[in-house]
Amino acid sequence: MRLAYLWDSTKCIACMACVVSCAGSNYSEIMRFEEPNPMMKWLGGNIRVVIREVGRPELRLVSCFHCDKPPCVLVCPTRASHIDRDTGLVLLDETKCIGCKACIVACPYGARWLHPTTLLPEKCPGPVCIDIIRGGRKPICVSVCPANARDFGDIDDPNSSISIKISKSKSERPLELLGTEPKYFIVKG
């Protein structure tokens, strides 16, 4: 099983439901911090917003793209960052992490951030979403999306909704040329 995320750029209306819900549900312990995510100057959650204001304005939601060849897993000295065998997701085993921040540096997507109290790297899926996914359900960002712009599922299963969407649409993966093989599909049309 290889679980993947899908984000439909043609449908997203930038409502921030996923961005705020991710923070509120996964990291509620820091939700009232003056600066919950100083590294990104952002809220304490796993989804960043990137907007291009020039040309035809465009939007990306950036979070862990769950590479099949993840640079963060490559650099982790303790195998704390690893590809989960059951799900194919890139996860962090916090008990092994020593906090060297190599994974944060290594991620070409800027998907990781330092938790302000544990000083350990955080990434998608957050702790609550991990359990939701283990329970066989779709993570919070997918379940809250009002615009049908997100999906999540097994790309090894040709009948999963995500596989069907990928097969039917023009999609791309972020910074594909880097060879990281992200399991995150951006639908473009």
Binding site: L74, P77, T78, L120
Partner: peptide, 22 residues
């Protein structure tokens, strides 16, 4: 510089041969 210096031994126990830091 790391967040958990006392866990340094884990680098040996969970040694990741791909990792240059290891």
């Amino acid at each position: 510089g790391v967040s958990r210096p006392l866990d340094f031994w884990k680098i040996y126990v969970y040694f990741n041969p791909d990792s240059r830091i290891a």
